[in-house]
Each structure stands twice: as C-alpha cells, then as structure tokens.
Design a protein around this nucleic acid. Structure first.
Length: 230
DNA sequence: ACCCAGGTGGCCC
DNA sequence: GGGCCACATGGG
C-alpha cells in the first residue's frame, strides 16, 4: 500500500467536497487557529457569530477590543490565547500587507511558511493548513491523524513532522487539490468510520487502519501492535 | 465522571 | 532535543 493507493481507497468511500468551507482566505486563517485542538462544530459557531456581527474582516478584528473578541471565541476553547493570536495576525496583515492576506500567501512558499511560523499561535500544522487551504499552495499537512493512520497502515512510523510531510509529498504530484483532498479524507475517515467502529472491520480500509484517534485506547493500541497490513 | 478534539508554546532537564 | 504541562469549551 502506497500513498496514491490509500488516496484512491479513501476517495472510493468518502466525499470531502466542501470540507473546509470558507468565503475568503482570511476566514480560513481564522478557522485554522480556532480549530486547534477543537471540534470543527465549535469553530463554526464562532465563524458564524463573527459574520453575524459583520466582523469577519482583517481590520475589524485588528481594531476590536480584545475582550470582545474573547467573548466571541469562547465556544472554541482556549479563547484567551486564540483571541490574542488572531488579533495579532490581523494587525500584522494590516500593517505589513494593507490588510490583504494575499500579499503573505502569494509570495515564495517557503518564505510564506517561515513568516507564518514566526507569528505566535501558528505552528507547523496551522501554517501548512493556511498555505494549503487559504493559499492553495501545495503543502501537505502532517497532522497527528495523518501520522497515526500512516503508522497503523504500516506505511510510515514517524513522529517527525517534516519526515511525514516529505514522505507524503514525495509520493504524490505537487498539487494543492490532491494534498487538500487527501488530508480531508484522512481526517474525515477518522471522524466518521474509525470513531464509530474502532476496529474498523467494515470500513474501506478493511482491518488495516484501526482507530486513528488519540492513541490512548487500550483496544486500539493492542490491535495496532498486532500488525496491520493488507 | 470520565475521555476526546483538524495544536502551540513555555519550562525543565 | 525530547518529555511534561497549561491552555478551555463542548460533545459523547
């Protein structure tokens, strides 16, 4: 089983079109920070509330009182940090790019990435999510779900972000649509099939994927040790 | 009453 | 450079 085969297999049983809905690059950036360690459902409430208030806007968020932003963000958890990180990003974009995220997203991809990583609250996954989903740049997100699935599929066992990212990217054409589809498929698969049935006996990956959520469940760890291969 | 979620950063050794 | 820990709300 290689990455391309896994991609095909997952595509056969899941539809992830419109998986990261957003009306702008800025909305994706906000969502990328909000979704850290939080269910998307909670992020949606915050995004909806920002829109309802007409505040889904770089300058609005840059100038909004911080405590007001915190109140809006509360349902997404870690609200104090996230409010501060998002407002900081908004002010940075306002200052450096006349409030237009495209200035940051459309420059050399490694420069964009380094710049994003220099901002507080933006680590590797968030930076790559922004590059991929907001910028449409070909960067694969080597998230925890991805690492666990590859591990339990017996494809690659590594906790090194860069190694996992390079492995996946090296086996696929450098296409942002392919990368975003695969990432969405992997996460969606974990959220639906695997969560409902940890042993994953009847899913499209047969007995290979097991549960790809946090490796804290005894039954899943046991099953994954037994060796999962096609 | 647990456990989990589409992470990040700070501190410790 | 790895191993802990805080951060916080909402759902199963």
């Amino acid at each position: 089983m290689n990455v391309a085969e896994l991609y095909l297999k997952l595509s056969e049983c899941h539809d992830v079109s419109g998986w990261w809905p957003a009306e702008s690059g800025w909305e994706v950036m906000v969502g990328a920070i909000l979704v850290q360690q939080t269910a998307w459902e909670n992020v949606e409430r915050v995004l909806g509330e920002l829109k309802r208030r007409g505040a889904m806007d770089v300058d609005k968020i840059a100038t909004m009182p911080l405590d007001e932003l915190e109140t809006i963000i509360r349902p997404a958890g870690f609200y104090r940090q996230k409010a501060s990180h998002i407002q900081n990003l908004a002010r940075y974009l306002a200052r450096e790019y006349s409030s237009d995220p495209r200035g940051l997203l459309e420059k050399d991809i490694e420069e964009s990435r380094t710049e994003l990583l220099s901002l507080p609250g933006i680590g590797e996954e968030t930076a790559d999510a922004i590059l991929l989903f907001a910028g449409g740049r070909p960067k694969f997100i080597a998230a925890a779900y991805v690492r666990r699935l590859l591990d339990r599929m017996g494809m690659l066992s590594s906790d090194d972000y860069w190694e996992v990212q390079r492995y996946v990217e090296s086996e696929l054409p450098p296409d942002a649509v392919v990368f975003s589809q695969l990432y969405a498929l992997m996460v969606h698969h974990a959220h639906t099939v695997c969560r409902a049935r940890p042993m994953c006996g009847g899913c499209c990956l047969r007995n290979s994927c097991r549960f790809t959520g946090t490796a804290g469940r005894a039954d899943c760890r046991r099953s994954s040790r037994r060796g999962s291969r096609w």
